[in-house]
Design a binder for these strands. Sequence first.
RNA 1: GUCCCCGUAGUUCAGUGGAUAGAACAAGACACUCCUAACGUCUAGACGCAAGUUCGAUUCUUGCCGGGGACACCA
Length: 604
Amino acid sequence: MNLQEILKNNVVLKLSEDMNFPVKEVLYLRIAELIEDYLSEKTGGDINFVVECPTEESHGDYSTNIAMILAGLLKRKPLEIAEEISQKISLPDLIEKIEVVAPGFINFKIKQDYFVKELKEILTRKDIYGAFCNIDHEHPNKVMIEFGQPNTHKAFTVGHIKGTISGLSVSKLIENLGYQVVKTNYYGDIGMHTAKCTWGVIQKGLPKDFDDWDKHKKMEFIADAYVYATENFDENEEAIRKINLKIYKESKGKILDLYNKIKDWSREHQKAIFADLGVFYDVEYPESQVFAEAKKIIDKNLNSKLSAGQEGIFSESQGAIIYDGEKEGLNTWVMQTSEGNPTYSAKDLSLGFQKFEDYPDLYFNLTLTSIEQKDYFKAVIKILETLDDKFKNRYFHVPFGWLLMDGKKTSSRSGKNIKGTDILEESLNVARTKIAELKDYDEEKKEEISKAVASAGLKFLILSHEFNKNVNYDPKKFIDFEGYSGPYILYAYVRAKSILRKAEVENLTLDIKDFSLNEYELNLLKWLARYPQTTFRAGTEIAPQLLCVYLFELAQRFNSFYTNCPIIKASGDEKQFRLSLTAGTAQVLKNGLNLLGIETIEEM
RNA sequence: GUCCCCGUAGUUCAGUGGAUAGAACAAGACACUCCUAACGUCUAGACGCAAGUUCGAUUCUUGCCGGGGACACCA
């Protein structure tokens, strides 16, 4: 089973008593029922047909390709089969019209009443509209999601920002599928980088008033010290390695004290960034904590130390201990250095064990990292599965693409990355300039709006790209606040809320008999109903970009409706309906943005 | 060398075994006495190349070309 299948399993929409059952599912189930006769004849097996919303609206609200698939299997004419099926479907409450079209599509036009019911559903269920629940009772539904993973003695980079934003959204999307998510941060507070940095700080010398510095400024100093050490590593390797051993062995003294102080300063800085991005972890694993166990795992599975007849998966080579992945088609990875320290590879193994020990009822784990670690995690997961069966189909790596500068990745080894705070600061400045040009709120309000807009802009930019593809960061025109962007969607939300405030409506009942809707109303109404299926796909396929596209289209349709249909100035049932539509749109925009980790504001 | 990812309009990106490949930005035109113009309407423009599988391929497979990455003591 792959991750997508596991995520899909047993996830169903939360149903209320008289809920509008999703039309896509109704059609799918009905067709599946109908084709059983055909299947038993020849194929016997399952077939994969789809019920989808065609892009071209003249092709109906929903459409299926079942007839063409059956035609291939049964060697019959697709149109003929389509005709047969369409006549048997018979869902009079739901379907207004069925059309059979060459080469064999069956297109459904859904009754307007269905969409109105769906709007009522939105207004009733509010914040939990579109949320799913997991009905699998055989498995626990707890899921761990690891993301962020900064190093304490090295800069928090744009890469970490991207990982954090992606991780937050994935967590929310999976939570929305009904899983209980445990957000995890595995941060690197041990290893060569800590020694390099500590050495660098000693060389540079801490300024006298350092304690009074701002936390981000402190971190800048620390990160620079790391860069300095990297640049001067070759000439000072011996001294740095000595420091490394002292840190590993926790030998008390000035070095360890300084190392710990740096760690505290760095953590303070990192926590502030996480909080800024809206991330609060449920559990954190410092690398130093899994270090001891890593050594044990290596020892237990080291070939040469095992008694005759037992075969370990690690072996010694040139003084180091390695995993030879060749027979599995994988690379060779060093598990322990010749100095006797476990490498990150070994630490990732003990981290895996630690997670399942702390959370015995964990269904599965997702580790999010940038894509260059893909091959590496193949090996980690393979080793975990070899060491213990419990990891089979329960430990997954989800890679995401980089944030590139002018089409290039900034050097990671040297530490000369763009700092995470730089990009946050920059997006905030762009937002400040923009709002200063456009609006005349008081300073406090301006700042509040700028923060929300900057965050929406950055998060949307990152999440609107395919998950494992790179995102280009062009400092000159880096964040769009117009067109396909977070602020555009935010703006649509603000407009909707503004109308609802002015109309002073409390409870919308939507108790209207006569509905003759214009194209703007209908376009918006129909699009709203697609929200649940969109979040389902975005979650199960780990594809926040699908939700981005959906929300943008929703905002566009709302803006179109907004300019063409007076809402407050309308009267009677029309006003009532338009207000409901506005409220429904605002609700879905808010729910959707929340799944992207974007907070809404009321004015901008 | 082995393996992995990517290649869609001038640019930045979506999308899909199906019916006319969607947007945004930039360009050009329009609208604007009206609930927030960070808005709306219209025009022009693209699936790297080649074979294969298929009723049907931009999507799947293979090869090639181009860009990026991983592969022994750093995470």
